[in-house]
Design a protein around this nucleic acid. Sequence first.
DNA 1: ATGCCTTTTTCGAAAAGA
Length: 287
Amino acid sequence: MLRVTNDGRNPMLIASWNVNSVRTRLEHVLAWLEHTQPDLLCLQETKVDDPLFPAEAFESSGYQLSFHGQKAYNGVAMLSREPLDDVRKGFIGELAEDGEALQLGEQKRVISALIDGVRVVNLYVPNGSSLTSEKYPYKLRWLACLKRYLEAARTRDEPLCVVGDFNIAMEARDIHDPERLSGGIMASDAEREALHQALGDSMNDVFRVFEPDAGHWSWWDYRSGAWNRDSGWRIDHIYLSDDLLSTARGCVIDKQERGREQPSDHAPVVVDLCWPPAEEEEEDDWE
DNA sequence: ATGCCTTTTTCGAAAAGA
């Protein structure tokens, strides 16, 4: 391992960022990697077919890549300093013989890999558009499939980290104007319940372990001066299984990135783990 | 508020995002 602390444990920075086109945002992402030095960066909305992914630029920065993209819309990728093992693309990567998983997989929104023994799942949840759009029931169907997907993944008993753009604010404190926006798209009871069902009771929103207050957003609409008015939503999340949560030392949203020139409308979210946990003292080496 | 802003496709209007 590259960086080992005095107690033998490894700092492990895992980040999630909807970049809204990896080619348009390439210089932003490279500069952010250089500055932040994450061990793993999970990207959403790469908007590029796999053969056109700007792989060399990231490999030159010392990252190994896996991506699952398509032209113009959607697309997810993982950039890692350590090897990415057992990479799984789409829902069908966990759900063989599942017709729904195959059909939903036409939109490239899911990729996962094993990194240093941790199963990391990178998601771009459908937006849904509005409660009356046909895209809204699609979002709910997608979340129901995610539930089956995560159940299948959990059978391997790996520490689990689920990150991404969830396009759902789970609570009033995750929205700048909850009185006006609660119940609407990205804040409706049905999608919140569907995501809760998908994650189960054993996955923890790690940002909330360290920050209970409102006023912390990960997405600001390009329209209506949302950034200048700080009218945001917290819809990009990092969920950790209990065994990983106990190793978390902090979780932050890198709001500064949203204030740059020609930014993504989302800011990166970063969790700082100390993985693996410290082992018990060896007792049999003293004689 | 059928808007607002940004990106993509493929040259420019339309779709999608959230």
